[in-house]
């Protein structure tokens, strides 16, 4: 139960940032929205990586920065969760 709650917290935080600060809030980004199709570019990716570093004290390694792992808030959150577990 606790594990599930932690992932949800990560999702909430990432979703808030991506929905309001990367895209226009009116775009209505959800956890499963395909961010690359929605227009995620390299500067948006940069902002997300800096946000993750600051918020979770976590540097996502280059080997994990792929289309599959970064294509939605859900996937990014799962990646953060997985990397934090390993820490």
């Amino acid at each position: 139960m606790e594990e599930h709650g932690f992932l949800e917290q990560i999702q909430e935080s990432v979703l808030g940032f991506v929905r309001n600060e990367i895209f226009d809030p009116s775009a209505g980004i959800e956890t499963d929205t395909h961010l690359i199709e929605a227009g995620l570019d390299s500067f948006s990716l940069l902002k997300i990586l800096v946000f993750v570093e600051k918020t979770f004290d976590l540097r996502i390694p280059e080997s994990e920065i792929s289309e599959e792992r970064m294509c939605s808030v859900g996937n990014i959150s799962a990646l953060i969760h997985e990397l934090l577990e390993k820490k």
């Binding site: 309001n20 600060e21 990367i22 500067f43 940069l46 902002k47 800096v50 946000f51 600051k54």
Partner: peptide, 14 residues
């Protein structure tokens, strides 16, 4: 968010 309304993403303080 106040900055995001006026500036492109890379200018907004991280």
């Amino acid at each position: 968010r106040f900055c995001s309304r006026s500036f492109t993403a890379y200018k907004v303080p991280s």
